[in-house]
Design a protein around this nucleic acid. Structure first.
Lengths: 173, 173
DNA sequence: TCTGAAAATATAACCCC
DNA sequence: GGGGTTATATTTTCAGA
């Protein structure tokens, strides 16, 4: 499913909530599992012609449902076998500023602001426990950070990207 | 970067830790950001010919560094605006069995077994708070589950797949 | 690893429902 | 509006060196 560039899929309002039908959902499901499918193969799976699925994919891109397509790399094979979730407690709500600079570090994969007994939640993937220690030291050095709690992953049973449901999803609240 | 099928990239030992050079890392970095790049474009970026990068990508697939390529879907656009992390405490270590059945639910994106004051960590994406409630009810109904703590994401500042570092990574512990 | 040619693919144009 | 068929332009991909 190559080359969005040639297809000039420019960004649209994105909130223009395109209603997804069964075809769209099947297409998204298939591409979420394997973005290398050719339009011919994709068309066969969802019972549509290649140009038809091509057109739909283009629209799904424009509407924002299909954000991009990415190569999924293997952490351990890349030399980063240590996955961890780090809860960060900060005085006040220093959500912006220096903590956002962590986004530049390749070890940091996710940064969320959450409810609950903590403020920030980070997903990080490191080469070693020493590398994690260095990362935590850097977090602690950030002004406003009161403390952290780390949850080191022992084994991962499931790790995937957002899924498109085949059936219509229940209406949102 | 289409069609791994035609390239017969069958699974190899994967622990055969292929040493990645600068070219490999740049290729992986580019493909992690956009898997739709043509080999010609990719080659230009890393200063290699198209067949050369093609060959490297094939080897990176075979070695397990490049696991697959996926369409990254947008949760909110798909009708699932509610992201949350759920900590699950269980009596003993009921890591297997019924909890693994949660992997079938499209709302559940990640299941990890972690160290710290909790046993399991789930990343879930739901349509509404009601849907999250239903999910939690299901978790509670699982034998051995003592309790859960949920961290609802208010805003996400970074969310990406594992990154390949441009520079050689420090040796593992 | 590069150069050039082959086969397969994406994609546009057009017609139909 | 959306889908199908044909035709063209890229692209992948296999030779060869």
């Amino acid at each position: 499913m190559p080359n969005a560039r040639n297809t000039e899929a420019v960004r649209k309002p994105a909130s223009a909530a395109r209603p997804l039908d069964g075809f769209d959902r099947k297409i998204l499901g298939a591409l979420a599992a394997d973005a290398d499918l050719s339009y011919a193969e994709l068309g066969q799976r969802v019972c549509l012609s290649a140009p038809a699925v091509h057109d739909r994919v283009k629209k799904l891109r424009a509407s924002g449902c299909l954000r991009r397509t990415a190569a999924i790399l293997d952490g351990p094979a890349l030399g980063k076998p240590l996955l961890a979730f780090v809860h960060v407690d900060s005085a006040g709500w220093g959500k912006t500023q220096e903590l956002m600079a962590m986004a530049e570090l390749p070890e940091v994969e996710e940064i969320h602001c959450v409810t609950g007994d903590t403020c920030m939640l980070l997903k990080v993937r490191c080469a070693s426990s020493r590398a994690l220690e260095a990362l935590l030291a850097r977090i602690y050095a950030t002004p406003g950070v009161k403390g952290t709690r780390s949850y080191v992953v022992l084994s991962t049973y499931l790790e995937r990207t957002p899924q498109a449901e085949i059936t219509e999803s229940l209406e949102a609240d």
